[in-house]
Structures are given as C-alpha cells and as structure tokens.
Design a protein around this nucleic acid. Structure first.
Lengths: 225, 225
DNA sequence: ACCTGAACACCGTTCAAGT
DNA sequence: ACCTGAACACCGTTCAAGT
C-alpha cells in the first residue's frame, strides 16, 4: 500500500489512457474503499495521470460511476429459476434484491441514472416475460417490472439507512418510539405498537415481494375468471 | 441578493444562535436553491456566524439536514380519507407519494435516516390502522406499511433519476433501447418492446399502489373467505 | 458555554498552455 | 488528439485559542 506510487508506463510505448483503464481504477477503489472514496483526483492518482486527463475519456464523474456498473451483476451466479411464471417472477425479484444487497454502492450509482449494466437485463427480461406468461398485457407487464424494481430499490436504500442509524448509538431513534404526549393521542395505533415496532417491522423480503407480485398479477387472474 | 451581507445582531442583546435559527436558515437555503446548496459554511454565512459555531448546536451536517425535515409534511393539506380501509390505505399511499413528489429534496435527506417529521406520522398511523381494519394481524400490518413506503420512496427516486437523465439530450439512453446483437438474442422480449418501452412503462402510481395494497391485503381476504 | 481563526485534507471543473 | 499545471470556487471537520 505505498501511497504516492505511480504506475510506470511500458518503455517505448506511449501511454494511452482510455476509458477502460479509468473505469477499472474506479472499480478497484470502490471494491477496496467504497464509492465515497472515488474522486477524479483519486482515480487520476491511481492511473498515474492528472485529474484533467480523465475528462478526455469520460464526460464527468457521474458518467464514470455509471460506467463502473457494467458487469457487476455477474458477481453472483444466475440462479436456476422455477418454471411457473408467478414463482419465477418472485424468484427473480428476490435474486435482484439479494444481489444488490451485497453491493450497496451500486444503489448510490443507480440513483444517478438507471440500470446500465447489460448483464443485468436478463432480470428485467425474466420479470416481463413471466408477467406476460401470467396473462398480463404488455403495458401491465412492463409496469409490473418497474414496480417490483422500485420496491427492491427503495427497500434496500431505506433498510440500509435504518441500519446505519441503528448502529450509531448516539443518535436518538427517530420513529416511532419516543412519541410525546400530543402526538401519542393522535397516533393511538403507533403508540401502542411503538415498543414492538422494531420486531414487528422485520421482514422476509420474499414474503413482501410475493404480496407485490400477487397484487400485480391480480388483473390477469381476474381476466381468467 | 447582496452577497457578503451579514445579519446584524439586535443592539445590546447578545446573539444566541440556537438550533432553530440554524435549521431555519438551512430550510431557507433549501427552498430557494435546493439541498445541494446547503453547506455548513453557507449556513454559517446566512446566520452571520462561523462554520464552527454551528457545531455547538447540531452534531454534524447530517443531523442538521434531518432537523430540516420537521414540519415539511404540512405543506400539503391533509386530505379527506375514504372510510373503507382498503380505499383509505390506497388514498394515504397516493397522498404520501404526491407529497414527496413536490419536495424531492426530502428524499435525499431521508436516505440518511428515516421518517423524522412527527407531523408525517399520521400517514403511518392511517396505513397501519387501515391494514388492521382490513383484517391483517399486527405484524403484517406494520410490514404492509413498510412495503408501501419503500415502494413510494424507490419510485420517486428512480423516476426522478430517469427524468433527470432524459432531460439531458447528450447522454445516451441506457435501457433498454440500443440493445446490441448478442444481448438482443438473449433478451427477445425486451428487444421487442424496446421501441415502446418509454410509453409502456409510464404509469399512474395509484394503479400500482392499488396492486401493491391488494397484494398485501391478500392474506386477510384469504382468512376471511 | 459559546464562539473564532487558522489549518487539514480534501472536492469537480474550467481554462490556457504545452507536445 | 491528448495531456498538464495552475487556478477557481468550494467542501466537512479538528484543534487551540479566545471571551
């Protein structure tokens, strides 16, 4: 871990920086120290160049981060999927959730854009196809995908935020413990459940995804009779 | 809009900074220029003090941002709610979505923690109560709230991200248009839908929330029937 | 107790200049 | 075309010192 270390260029060959080198360096920093550690200056140092040289190969920092997403979804092997379309949809959604749970930095980058890893598109394909196989029309199938994905994303971000806060003992818990007088009177149910909130809200994400999928497939079931 | 302007302290009275002044200044900056414009230095300038003085009243920047959340939910009047618990649950969820859509900066702050505005808790109360009234047990009711909220959050963040990217014409669209050869073969459905993806995915959030609520209330219906 | 000034260790990006 | 150096306009936070 030498600090000021510079990569030597191969003798006789002019250095060609290229986006791949830059993206690879960014990925290395992410894997070792987290997304927060990525900066144009830091990446430049890593590839033995100057911050401004990077701007010749990527338009800005957001673009660079988005480029680091490519291939990340292959970190976890693609699972065998059940044949039944409803089961299949649930399985893919659960996989998606589990995958991103293992790489929370991806969530931060995704907030800048949207899915950009072509190797991750099979999940969208499977969900849409399963929805169609379940009898939804095209529009409903695509929207079903979107709804599942938005829940997965929100669940991961907010669960992580809650865990981060819970890990810091100095911060007072925000919700819904510590409801004071007036609030308590207007919020009888939350007040009653406050003490058990933490345990009550803990959930198996598969159960929630199953509920969502069933809700989304509802119209198909209704159409079938 | 004089730049270096400093607030004069009332003559004869020593300035007492206090958290309220600081939070109010932060809110003002947010309303006028967005959360991105909030910095400890900027807030300090606004209250005519030094950055470090703030640290006597708030533990750090995250805490300050979380404090600015208080009362934001009253910006939109509390709607009349239908009596039917299922309808009520949907109505509150839709309200929650609409409320936060109007103040996207809140989403950024919420990623740091969780709901911290006591004036927003009535939405949790209503959703949990409606779920109970629909026949869910306590644990399921609380989890239903969490699921609805996580979807609302994810939907708003990702929709905003997509819109931001779409507004910038220079950035190439990411998904799922521009699928190349090999990808296309493995993703027949997405390839087929690619051209219409934008229009297909557009949705009325009430419809999706209705599906989610129906899915979550499923177990109650099963128990009743 | 409350506040200040200086400092530490950073940021992303623009611009003009070099090869 | 590709890269550099200097500069602009910032960050959050620590620390020692002041009143």
């Amino acid at each position: 871990m030498v600090d000021g270390e510079k990569k030597k260029r191969a003798p006789g060959r002019p250095r060609r920086l290229g986006p791949e080198t830059i993206v690879a360096a960014a990925r290395r920093i992410i894997d070792e120290e987290g997304v927060e550690a990525v900066s144009m200056r830091r990446v430049a140092r890593e590839v033995g160049s100057t911050p401004m040289a990077l701007y010749h190969h990527v338009r800005d920092k957001d673009e660079l981060l988005l480029l680091t997403l490519a291939g990340t979804s292959t970190a976890v092997p693609r699972p065998a999927l059940p044949a039944d379309p409803r089961e299949r949809m649930i399985a893919v959604a659960v996989h998606m959730h589990g995958l991103l749970k293992r790489m929370p930095w991806v969530l931060k980058v995704l907030a800048l854009g949207d899915l950009t890893d072509p190797k991750a598109l099979w999940m969208a394909e499977e969900i849409v196809q399963s929805a169609l196989d379940s009898g939804l029309d095209e529009a409903r199938a695509v929207r079903a995908y979107r709804t599942v994905w938005h829940f997965v994303y929100g669940d991961l971000v907010l669960t992580a935020a809650r865990e981060r806060r819970a890990a810091d003992p100095d911060r007072r818990p925000s919700f819904p413990s510590a409801l004071t007088g007036e609030d308590a009177r207007e919020l009888p149910r939350l007040t009653e459940l406050a003490g058990r909130w933490e345990e009550l809200q803990r959930y198996d994400v598969r159960e929630q995804l199953t509920a969502i999928v069933d809700g989304l497939l509802g119209p198909a079931r209704a159409a079938r009779g």
